[in-house]
């Protein structure tokens, strides 16, 4: 049956989505861009200040340190999370014994709120009263007080928090891989590793991209875990750019300058996901299951 123009739903069906998107996404973004050209401490009305916030941002060494730290976090969390999430996800998609029981343990962090996770780890890693101090080989290691170690500590906690979510993505995707491909491969004599690398991994390609984009964008929007765990400290050792924006805006009440940082984050997040989606051919959404 030929699909004619009349058969398609009216454009008005789109209205609720457009209204929602406009009110809660486009409008705030426009306002943030406007605010980034003003000076406003929360009282009265924002006063236009030209490009002052932007020249300040260019000269602000702390903002650039934060940006660099954000990129470091982005890379480290990706490197830690992706292999672990993929392996657990593929495993959890199978039909092994005890899979359901163990999976529910792996997904446990997903059930905890960010605040609970941050407070939990802060207590576990406390240099005076934490559980780690009872372990012989970790005795005396100051996970949250050492300005170099703390970066890896935070990467660990954030990975612990988000791996279950990405595992869920990989589990769902791995379940979609047709069983017949594995049967054919087994007939051809491929072992388990060969099957993983030539069937599972290529078919998970788009899931890897989705998961990657979520991680990259997550790095430029999330700060709650770090805020509670370290407050960006010691000093500024873990003050990533979103947290720098929060502190500037909601402790210093410099909403204009904080908005300039927000715009930078917005561009960074949009740019990164754009780069990833177009570089990988994600947007084509071709079927990966030709002949199936």
């Amino acid at each position: 049956m030929a699909v004619t123009r009349q058969d398609r739903p009216s454009g008005w069906y789109l209205a609720p989505a457009v209204a929602f998107f406009g009110a809660f996404a486009v409008l705030p973004m426009v306002l943030v861009v406007y605010l980034s050209f003003t000076s406003w401490n929360g009282f009265g009305f924002p006063a236009l200040s030209g490009a002052e916030n932007w020249t300040r941002l260019i000269e602000d060494g702390r903002a650039w340190d934060s940006l660099w730290l954000t990129l470091l976090f982005m890379v480290l969390t990706w490197v830690v999370q992706t292999p672990i999430a993929m392996l657990i996800g593929v495993w959890a998609a199978g039909h092994q014994r005890n899979r359901a029981v163990l999976s529910s343990f792996f997904f446990l962090p997903l059930l905890l709120s960010t605040a609970a996770i941050a407070l939990l780890w802060a207590a576990v890693l406390d240099p005076n009263f934490g559980a780690t101090q009872a372990l012989p080989f970790l005795d005396g290691v100051n996970f949250l007080g050492n300005t170099e170690l703390v970066v890896y500590t935070v990467v660990w906690v954030i990975s612990w928090q988000y791996i279950p979510f990405h595992t869920l993505l990989y589990q769902a995707a791995a379940r979609q891989v047709p069983q017949s491909l594995y049967e054919a491969a087994t007939l051809d004599g491929a072992g388990r590793y060969r099957q993983f690398f030539t069937i599972t991994l290529p078919l998970l390609k788009y899931t890897v991209i989705t998961s990657t984009v979520l991680m990259l964008v997550g790095s430029v929007t999330t700060f709650d875990t770090i805020l509670i765990l370290t407050g960006g400290g010691p000093g500024t050792a873990t003050r990533i750019l979103p947290l720098h924006m929060y502190i500037t805006g909601f402790s210093g009440f410099e909403f204009g300058y904080a908005s300039a940082i927000a715009v930078l984050l917005l561009l960074l997040g949009a740019g990164l996901s754009l780069a990833v989606t177009s570089a990988t051919g994600f947007r084509k959404m071709q079927s990966q299951q030709e002949g199936m």
Binding site: V213, L214, V217, G218, D224, S273, R283
Partner: peptide, 23 residues
């Protein structure tokens, strides 16, 4: 193509922002 890519990217950014904002 640019429009489509931008829309997709925008949607993903928003998904992330919404997840963060829920807290």
């Amino acid at each position: 193509r640019l429009t489509r890519v931008t829309t997709q990217a925008g949607a993903l950014v928003l998904a992330g922002a919404l997840v963060a904002a829920c807290g």
